[in-house]
Amino acid sequence: MKNKNIIYRIYQMYYDGFKNMTIGKNLWIIIFIKLFIIFIVLKLIFFPNFLNSKFTTDKEKSDYVIEQLTKNK
């Protein structure tokens, strides 16, 4: 029996779409590896936010940047 429920039809579209993927499966593997490298390896290890890692409040951050902008002047 054909289920006309919109949620079910959306689910079925995604289900069939993923199930019948050919090259898409390899692409998803590449996407997941890439996202892992970008968000876990690069972001956490190599790209902490410089100001957030040194200061906790906005006032501390602005004081630091003003010092950077005005020192030696």
Partner: peptide, 27 residues
């Protein structure tokens, strides 16, 4: 689709660089 899948999220690294390497600028 191939181009989109390989390219997606490569731009987010530029935003990481703003926060890490260019913090004075970002602020």
């Amino acid at each position: 689709g191939i181009n989109f899948a390989i390219g997606v999220a490569t731009g987010i690294i530029l935003e990481f660089e703003f926060g890490t390497n260019w913090s004075n600028y970002s602020w």
